[in-house]
Amino acid sequence: MIEEKEKRGLTISLCIPTLNEEKTIGKEVVLFKSELVDRYPLLDEIAVIDSGSTDRTIEVAASFGASVYLSADILPQMGFKRGKGENLWKAIYQLQGDIIVYVDADIKNIHPRFVYGLVAPLIYRPEIKYVKAFYDRPLALSKEIRPSGGGRVTEILVRPLFSLFFPELTAIIQPLSGEYAVRREILERIPFPVGYGVETSHLIDVYDGWGIEAFAQTDLDKRVHRHQATRDLGKMSFGILRTFLKRLKSKGIIKDLPELTPFLRQFQAREDHYEQIIHEIVEEERPPMIEVPEYRARRGLE
């Protein structure tokens, strides 16, 4: 794989977006650096882009040899927005690779395959633009059906929406997985929601621009991560739905959409009464990086 990468003159950057991930970031950095930089030089760059952690994430990542950037320090003139999508977008400016691999920082069972499994289709198949991870680890294969392994938000929200409006995208087994590798030429041309909707919007925009043929999927076997509470999944679903509806409108699929509120209302029970909690979830969007003058200057674009 490395020979092929060098033959094609490709460079690969790994971006790990973080916010308070001191428990898992050290292991990710050590494994990727040792196995995929020192032992097998597949990666040209490992960068942690942090949203302002208040724990030891930055210290731990740096102590194990990662380049650490504060999201707020990248393109400071464009301001700082809190959200994973912001870090992913700023990585396009900060990192040098022709391919950028994004891997979440909260994976407990991290392994080099999380990177080499994602970049392999991009190295060997020039027509592939965007590689998405999925996770499937059957203990025994029989003729019986088994679940595809998608999370609750995938199965309850995203897959029904794709089925209704973008049926071809239902081929993506786990559309919300946070692990994917993408060619720069694609990344710099798509907008980035800064919050929960970034993965969903990527799929819609890449599909819209380059077709379903641009996608590949890799089975990364198993992913062990934090279990999220249902209430948090509600917030995630709200953000995704806002992004999704915005895409439908911008693509002319639906027209008369009312102004969408950024407020999600949830209930919680306390003793003998219910109380309402209101979350403000703003799904701001960053423009395609290629439209940012500083980026064009940095990359030497006309």
């Binding site: 292991k27 050590v30 494994l31 650096k33 196995e35 020192d38 194990f64 040899g65 069972n109 392994h111």
Partner: peptide, 13 residues
């Protein structure tokens, strides 16, 4: 150090 730690993790898991 990192090489050893990576081996510890990969073998130990």
């Amino acid at each position: 150090r990192e090489l050893l730690l990576a081996n510890v993790i990969m073998l130990g898991e």
